[in-house]
Amino acid sequence: MRTTAAMAIATAIYLPFAGPGAAAEVLPAEVKSKVSGELVWHDASGGATTRAREETVIKDFAAETGITVKGDFNSDMTKFFAAMDSGASIPWSFVEFPTKGDFIKAREAGYLQKLDPTIVDFTKIGEASHDEYGVEVLRYGIVFTYNTEKFKGDNVPTSIADIYDLKRFPGKRCLFKYPQFGGVLESALLADGVSRDQLYPLNLDKAFAKLDTIKSEILWWSNGDDAIRLLSSGECSMGIAWSGRVYGAVRNDKAPLAIKWDNSLYSQAVYAVPVGAPNAEAGQAMIAHFIADLEGQKALVEQITYTTDVAGLDSSSYGSDLAPWIVAGDNAKKAIEENASYYAQHITEVVDRFNRWVALN
């Protein structure tokens, strides 16, 4: 039994709206009849990714159901797991896990509700992209990114390993201040000669030794918008960023950025409903709507290039201009899938060691 008060949250609010041009309704009437009120969701993305969702799929969901949606941004899952571990009353009725590893950890801990098949239509999502507790969404690249004004002609970096070549490619490196879903440890091992099929389990001693060689040149970022700002401005000559964020900066702001998929990584978020959710029906309905809203999906991918394995859509559904930015085809073959099982089992020790290493002068 959860006995403590719900945790205070900072929220972004999306109110229901219906009007000219409203999206087609995609939820069955019997599902909509079950939901009402307010939904607070745990947002692990923030920034451009959340803005894209608010302007597309969340807007469509609020318009169709009349539910008020509030996003609570947290850059990793520390707050979620701390609340669940303590038995605190939680505010979230819908949770975005930024990686499948985080989802597996929560599922194995008994922190998630089974999804209700009378609400969430599993026929609308690929069979390999869901289980009873969650739906895989927003497949994203964790990609090597460089500033094209810093490197031109024959002196252009080609691989994530070039982050560690300070002599040939000088300048600050932008890396995610968290060891998972940022490719920090994996990039170090690849640069040290570890083959891609031997990355996991991670050799932490070797990874941190390689990171030591560039530590003085690292600028840490904690959210995707900061990564883009640092790379676009030239404060960092190269680094690792999320593919959709780079795409948005190039498309919308003409940012001088390029990416390379070779030995970059990719992962996927997972949507789920936590045990103790104050409005579990609305959380389940939000997942159901997300995978049924085909037009919303197309509009979302146009903005952020993170695709979901929903029925009726494939990579050809989004147009040839987006092909270089989507985790599919040759891009997926060149990149490496982050090992969700490894992180689910070892994330606590990895984060602890990473934080201690960062804190050392």
Rank of each mutant, 00 (worst) to 15 (best):
A328G: 08
L360T: 14
R173C: 04
K70V: 02
V31N: 03
K210W: 03
T4N: 12
H289K: 04
Q284F: 01
L189M: 09
P91I: 02
A52E: 00
A272K: 02
G134W: 06
T308I: 03
L204C: 03
L15V: 10
S36K: 15
E132Y: 14
R356L: 13
I163R: 01
Q284H: 06
V194I: 13
A24F: 00
M286I: 00
D72P: 08
L115N: 12
S129Q: 11
L257K: 03
A48R: 07
A109E: 15
Y306S: 04
K124H: 10
K254H: 11
Q180T: 14
L300H: 01
G296Q: 09
T305K: 05
A340T: 10
K100I: 12
V194N: 08
F94M: 11
C236D: 03
A82C: 02
A88Q: 11
V137S: 04
D154W: 00
A5V: 15
L230E: 08
E295I: 10
T213V: 11
F61H: 12
S341D: 14
L39S: 07
N203T: 15
L219P: 07
A62G: 14
K152P: 02
G182E: 05
A280Q: 06
G248D: 14
T348K: 15
Y271W: 13
A344S: 14
P179F: 04
S45R: 03
G276Q: 06
G71K: 01
G110L: 08
H130W: 11
I104G: 08
E217M: 02
E149Q: 10
T99R: 07
V95A: 02
A44H: 01
A188D: 07
